[in-house]
């Protein structure tokens, strides 16, 4: 009898523990349980300052994917960002990707403005039409010098 209570206790402990692990990794850590439910496209930016891997990718404020890795293309000296987009979300060929900030000092994210083209981007294609990070300092300087 005693042995069974011990086994039960261990079982309960492991169950609760694993439940917490799953919650943390899947819900909080956004682990992709099944690898194949997104496709990757690329976008080239002049400046992605502040953007981090795992930042969200949104269309009309709805999250449709996440940023994969961010690299520098040495030839063009531009930032190449890989975007992991959910499989069922189509992105048109002429869509515009822009780096935006949530709030004044909030996190950076990528917003995609859908285009009008019939042609959709295939996995591995690149969005060429992009808007880079809005540099607030630059903006202020321009404001001060009366250019805006």
């Amino acid at each position: 009898m005693k042995k069974y209570t011990m086994e039960t206790a261990v079982g309960v402990f492991v169950f609760i523990g694993l439940l917490c692990v799953v919650y943390l990794t899947v819900k909080l850590g956004k682990m992709e349980i099944i690898g194949g439910n997104f496709y990757v496209i690329y976008a080239k930016f002049d400046n992605v300052s502040g953007l981090k891997p795992d930042s969200s990718v949104e269309i009309a404020g709805v999250e449709i994917g996440r940023v994969g890795d961010i690299k520098l293309d040495v030839n063009s000296e531009m930032a190449v960002v890989s975007l992991k987009i959910k499989k069922d979300i189509p992105v048109q060929e002429d869509a515009i990707a822009s780096v935006k900030t949530s709030g004044l000092i909030g996190d950076k994210y990528i917003s995609i403005t859908p285009g009008g083209s019939e042609e959709l981007l295939k996995p591995g294609d690149t969005i060429t039409d992009t808007e880079s990070t809005l540099d607030i300092e630059d903006l202020i300087r321009q404001f001060v010098h009366g250019k805006v």
Binding site: L24, T25, L28, G29, K30, M31, K52, D107
Partner: peptide, 10 residues
């Protein structure tokens, strides 16, 4: 929490 926590934290 969901927005700011990434896998690496976990």
């Amino acid at each position: 929490i969901y927005d700011s926590v990434v896998m690496k934290d976990v």
